[in-house]
């Protein structure tokens, strides 16, 4: 273990959907600045795990701490914790009734009481970063999928989170749009953002991840560096999975 406490600390988490065991005694630590890519077959619980980190899913047992705060404790204000956790969804989920700019400024203005001018300046800077500045006054429906997802990343960044969670951010995109989103994520990773990414993009995992977490049937099977995972996987099930997809 590191001398520094991990910023995300998941310990012995179990989660059921009815009688189906979605998470099976999952433990996982993520350090500040670390990039963890979670992969695995569909139904392996990777999205569920990601969603428990900001309590979009509750858990049945175990603990999850963010920055030392137990997020499932009734004493913690989950909304405060969520402000520090940016999340990007598979289906973008931009607010359809707001322009791109408003999508970015809404949370800082309402939740952080940031002056409108300042929030707009921050938003413009972020839109420039994700290379979509010229669409600031458009509505989400007027954008392509790749553009919407880049706006969604910028929206999450507008709250200046400590951690970014990505839930299959490119799975709903046409192939030619996947790279523009992955490029933005790669830049973010280079800047030192702590990231947990659920994805099927093995190239991204290989290039960006500090650690690859392989999940199967609700359990973490293996946590290795990309080098080890892709070249000499430690587990039979990881090996089989890689053989299927590569």
């Amino acid at each position: 273990m590191n001398a520094v406490d991990p910023i995300i600390k998941i310990e012995h988490v179990n989660k059921y959907f009815g009688t189906f065991k979605a998470l099976d005694d999952v433990s996982l630590n993520v350090n500040t600045g670390e990039k963890v890519v979670v992969i695995g077959p569909s139904g392996s619980g990777k999205s569920t795990l990601l969603r428990t980190i900001n309590r979009l899913e509750t858990i049945n047992s175990g603990t999850i701490s963010i920055d030392g705060r137990d997020i499932n404790s009734p004493k913690e204000d989950i909304n405060r914790v969520r402000m520090e956790l940016g999340m990007v969804f598979q289906s973008f989920n931009l607010f359809r009734h707001k322009t791109v700019l408003e999508n970015l400024t809404m949370a800082p203005i309402k939740l952080k009481k940031m002056p409108k001018k300042e929030a707009e300046k921050l938003a413009m800077r972020l839109l420039e970063k994700v290379d979509i500045l010229e669409r600031a006054n458009h509505y989400p429906i007027q954008l392509s999928g790749g553009q919407q997802q880049r706006v969604a990343i910028a929206r999450a960044l507008a709250m200046e989170p400590k951690i970014m969670l990505f839930d299959e951010p490119t799975s709903a995109l046409d192939p030619e749009m996947i790279n523009e989103v992955l490029d933005v994520m790669t830049v973010l990773a280079r800047e030192g953002m702590t990231m947990v990414v659920v994805t099927h993009e093995m190239g991204f995992a290989r290039e960006v991840a500090d650690h690859v977490v392989f999940m199967d049937q609700g359990a973490v099977v293996e946590k290795s560096t990309p080098d080890v995972f892709f070249n000499e996987p430690q587990h039979q099930r990881s090996k089989m999975f890689l053989e299927q997809i590569l």
């Binding site: 979009l56 969520r82 607010f95 949370a107 709250m159």
Partner: peptide, 12 residues
């Protein structure tokens, strides 16, 4: 998804 996006930003 709209609700989830809003909650994930920290809105109650």
């Amino acid at each position: 998804g709209q609700t989830e996006a809003s909650l994930s930003l920290g809105f109650n």
